[in-house]
Design a protein around this nucleic acid. Sequence first.
DNA 1: AAATAAATTGAGATACCGTATCGTTGAGAG
DNA 2: CTCTCAACGATACGGTATCTCAATTTATTT
Lengths: 140, 140
Amino acid sequence: MEDQEIRKAGLKVTAPRVKILELLENSEQRHVSAEDVYRMLLSANEDIGLATVYRVLTQFEEAGLVEKHHFEDGHSVFELNKGKHHDHIVCVTCGRVKEFVDETIEDRQKKIADELGFQISEHDLVIYGKCLDDACERKP
Amino acid sequence: MEDQEIRKAGLKVTAPRVKILELLENSEQRHVSAEDVYRMLLSANEDIGLATVYRVLTQFEEAGLVEKHHFEDGHSVFELNKGKHHDHIVCVTCGRVKEFVDETIEDRQKKIADELGFQISEHDLVIYGKCLDDACERKP
DNA sequence: AAATAAATTGAGATACCGTATCGTTGAGAG
DNA sequence: CTCTCAACGATACGGTATCTCAATTTATTT
């Protein structure tokens, strides 16, 4: 049950939080924006304000339940935290997102930060490209 | 002379473009936001509108004269294009930015994109961390 | 050098994303 | 069940970036 996860995060179990968490868990796309979530809630006839969506997603992020990413187009997306770090590759045309992990890159990053006198808190590698999928089209 | 570069970019040589390019070339910081540029112009008693600053920077970007980067805090910065690709490491506290290049990482990226069926157009690796500089302080 | 056509400009309006405020509601401890 | 404080929805707001449009400027043509 979602209730447990929310409680564990130190948050009260409220309808919006449960609904949003459910939605994230059952969503087709792993990467959704706050607006996406809001629209999905409307479709589901849930009466939840946009401000609450942002609030809840931010709280979930602080609690480590979801991760937030800022892509170059200025769009922020949230995704359920699977607990495993990964980077993203985004199609510049259709917006499709894939995930990947590469130990070599991870190691090099640590080394570089070390050399430059930084203590890594996090990082974001995003590769932008054109995917070769047949259905790749610019979104409307 | 800046005129040449602007002309080569296919743009008319106008006062705002020359001033902005000069400013980028002589600026202390390599990484400046549009607002930064605007404020610098005001200080220099130039009568150039904010909209123009955005327009010119965007044109410069399209012409390849500058590069634009979107950091996680939602801040965009521009920097003169030295023609050489590099990535960034940003201090989460003081905002200091350093650049680096790592061939190993570059290679791995190409390989990953290949495997996932993407044709890389560009990429952005940003490492966020805490720098160990003595003067590191949160900005006012 | 003057005329002209096209591009560019500044000011302000506007769009956009995300945050803050505020009065109301409801979760959950006692 | 009652009470208190956190959480809520609505809406105003803030900062960044873009759009609109009349006025100006560029650079080409006379």
